[in-house]
Amino acid sequence: MSVTTVFGSIDSFKKGGVEITGNEDARDYLFSNMFEVAGNAAPWERTVIAKNLENTIECIRAEGDSPWYICNHDETALLMQGSMEVRFIQPADSGLAPPEEKQGSVKLAGQPEGRAMGHVNATRGHLVLLPAGAAYQFRAQELSVILLQTIQGDESVENWAEICQH
């Protein structure tokens, strides 16, 4: 008998939910759906969908070319829908890298000068390392959804009341 593994997308997802059976509040579960979040987001907006102290998972609606970013710690990008290229540059100006105490990624004014490090082509389910100190840009070949494993920073947007069941 054949099996079908069910994945979601912005155009095709079914959302579960929280049913309270005791003395509790559904808001405590911060329940959301990443495809619903991405469907309502602006391109490249980084919506926090999970938070654990300073650590975050951020949902990105990917369309076209993103700005360039740099971060002083590793991040990862998990592609949950679509396809993308991730380009990496080692900046010639070491001053572009955020200071050690700065958490989360920083948006750059444009493509930095420096040595091309290479690129990664990814499709659904692929997890890509965004190494510390490397400037990076996403280029989405179609409407895509990215989950970013990172630390809360300047680009992180919290919209819990809008995205969560309550």
Partner: peptide
Amino acid sequence: VADKNTAAPMSVVTMKAGDVACMP
């Protein structure tokens, strides 16, 4: 989901592809 100390039922959380939930 149940209370950690008493095992009293608290909720049922159904998660489908793309859903995200915190476990307090």
